[in-house]
Design a protein around this nucleic acid. Structure first.
Lengths: 124, 124, 124, 124
DNA sequence: GTGGTCTAGACCACG
DNA sequence: GTGGTCTAGACCACA
């Protein structure tokens, strides 16, 4: 279910968090779905349980997931909205990057093109 | 000349690199200009010389600067183009972020708006 | 009779205890009333019998209930007073929370308002 | 500086978080103050560094503290407001507890008295 | 030396 | 079996 690259510079637990976000956005994970247990995923990925735990803790903190002791970790009912809320930060990040592009002499059309490229394709 | 925030979470050496890039883009620094010596800047900013050294090394690696042993560190002749080249990465980064926005249900116009916002306004 | 939320972070057995307390306070349960058997409630709520047992044990410990071996579990004669006694702890808890509010600069009126809000309204 | 009770039911890392909050509210810790390093505090309290780390991570998450790698952990400039914001939750908690008191037959005056008791005394 | 991440393995409360 | 907490010790980037 999850695929991690232990050689990547981004921490393993963040990779898990990011993939989980992606799966929710893609509809692969939906509200109420049960995530793999800490132990099971730790075996599956050959990763220490603590690291999985840390990832799940972060997902819980972001309201993407509710972990109920003794039963498991579940995608929260507000998961999708929670992500959408978080992703709004991307707008200011894009603004910042575009500002740098402008200063570097990259024409506006090229910057707009990158955005359009991302949006073209499937409806979703 | 440089202003660093020691409480920021972005490493000090990266702050120096980023400001140096900015100064070149703004024309404050031009080809041939001499940067402060490691020793002088380390005193001025009350920062460990190693950190300054690391920043200058990174700037050299990015072809923004050429260090002439015994004479000092100078803005390279190709500095501006070097930065512009680097900033092209922003385009793919913007594309990635925009892709996430799309998945999160943010309308295209809003994403394009962020880019336009960065480009509108005076010369800068 | 009982409604439990398996996704809540408060343990299931505590949810049962709390609802039982509430029902006594509201007069829905009175002295001498028989509670559902462990087996029956476990089926009804689709919950492990051990969990029901634990809830009833806790209720017994709090003198809210007396379990008669072979006959069942009954609301004790002193149930209402037992709860009232327990709830006195709320007073010191409120005092503690109010102390924090004071330190955080929240005006007294606001804290008093929260209490009054809880008391105003119909009989309940 | 910190005092923890390893036998308490509340996790050690939460005890540290709570004490840190308290110290900020009392003015013992102010913006910019440096907290003990993870290692130092771990030695001082005879507690595993990971546990300290977890406490500091939580404090960072609550905007009470900013940890800057390589330099240390510092009380954030917005620490006081961050706590005040969090403590507003106490109001609804008080309301909930007061609701229980009402149901248990505790007179309003007694509940109000608990709040007043917390507020009387020093100005602050 | 500092914080950040990770591993290995343990105990607990809960179900 | 499940998540939550904790210990013991390691390596890394950064200052």
């Amino acid at each position: 279910m999850f695929q991690i690259d232990p050689l990547s510079r981004t921490p393993v637990y963040e990779q898990i968090v990011a993939q989980c976000e992606e799966y929710v956005l893609l509809g692969i994970l939906s509200s109420g779905d049960k995530l793999p247990s800490v132990r099971q995923l730790s075996l599956e990925l050959a990763i220490n349980p603590n690291t999985i735990q840390k990832a799940y803790l972060e997902l819980d903190r972001r309201k993407l997931v509710t972990s109920v002791p003794g039963r498991g970790v579940f995608v929260s009912t507000e998961a999708f909205e929670a992500i959408s809320r978080d992703k709004k930060k991307n707008l200011s990040e894009i603004e910042r990057l575009a500002g740098e592009l402008k200063a570097a002499g990259v024409p506006l059309d090229e910057a707009l093109g990158a955005v359009r490229k991302a949006y073209e394709g499937g409806e979703r």
